[in-house]
Nucleic acid binder design. Structure first.
Length: 271
DNA sequence: CAATCAACCTGGGTGC
DNA sequence: TGCACCCAGGTTGATT
């Protein structure tokens, strides 16, 4: 579910809500999602304070006062909710971190693909983060982007979503960016012209910024740290619009499968 | 090396 | 109503 804008929204929320709070405990009814194990994580984090929150790609990192880090990946249906202790149980809550100030950080996840992982120090974190490609709103210039596209003959949409090549772009924003750039998602990446690459990079930034502005896309499961929906789903250009009129011509949005993922585009104006 | 696909899970929707 | 099947914002690891 969550792509860069959704994870960034949660990062900003958590920065306001839990920084400075002390960790009092952790429980789970889904042990596989806590790594390396609940016992080890509990021992490492209880008593520490939350120092700061960061995001890299779709991975959240909670930096603790004792130098350790909790890395959290939400995968498809993960949520991170900050609640008062007596707030009613959230749907699919599986990991509960109790905090000072009568608060809880609840990790909820319908499909249980997400995880909470203890990272021992900055070195171990760096190793993990080294796998990710550049950040599109930060680190990705046209030169790098052209080189990334030129490096593969796979469909351009698959390259946009490959976290090793570019980090943070997922299915929703990849579809919408390709629509704005008027590029067919099936085109081999290396066949994208320099002119098209320039446009594509611009609109990737545009859709991600729109996603952040609207506090994420709550098409199905996404909620921010206070349990509120985002609004980007009201501004989808192609995602989930199969059979509906293209916003740019008199064609209709078509859905195909690409790399096993639902892919939405207008065959009439995306060339 | 690239491409494809199953696997990890649960629940909602559809069609028979 | 029941059941089989397909689909879902992500990533990884096995297999062609």
């Amino acid at each position: 579910m969550p792509e860069l804008p959704e994870v960034e929204t949660i990062k900003r929320d958590l920065s306001k809500l839990i920084v400075g709070h002390k960790i009092l405990g952790i429980t789970t009814d889904s042990p596989k999602q806590v790594q390396p194990s609940l016992t080890v994580v509990k021992k490492a984090i209880v008593g520490a304070k939350v120092k700061r929150i960061k995001r890299r790609a779709k991975l959240l990192q909670i930096f603790l006062s004792n130098g350790q880090i909790l890395a959290i990946h939400l995968k498809m249906t993960g949520r991170l909710l900050v609640r008062k202790k007596d707030f009613p149980k959230d749907d699919w809550q599986h990991v509960i971190i109790s905090l000072s100030g009568n608060q809880e950080l609840r990790f909820a996840d319908l499909r249980k693909f997400g995880w909470v992982k203890l990272i021992k120090d900055k070195k171990e974190l760096e190793k993990l983060l080294a796998e990710f490609g550049p950040e599109p709103l930060d680190d990705l210039d046209l030169k790098k982007f052209r080189a990334i596209l030129a490096s593969s003959g796979r469909p351009v949409k698959i390259i946009l979503m490959d976290q090793k090549k570019i980090s943070g772009v997922g299915n929703i924003y990849a579809n919408d960016a390709l629509f704005l750039a008027k590029i067919d998602p099936r085109r081999p990446a290396k066949k994208i012209s320099d002119q098209e690459a320039k446009k594509l990079l611009q609109v990737i930034e545009k859709v991600l910024k729109a996603g952040i502005k609207y506090r994420g896309a709550s098409d199905q499961y996404y909620l921010d740290a206070l349990g509120r929906k985002g609004a980007y789903q009201e501004h989808f250009l192609t995602y989930g619009r199969e059979g509906k009129k293209c916003f740019d011509c008199d064609g209709k949005v078509k859905k195909i499968k690409l790399g096993g993922r639902g892919t939405f585009f207008c065959p009439k104006c995306q060339k």
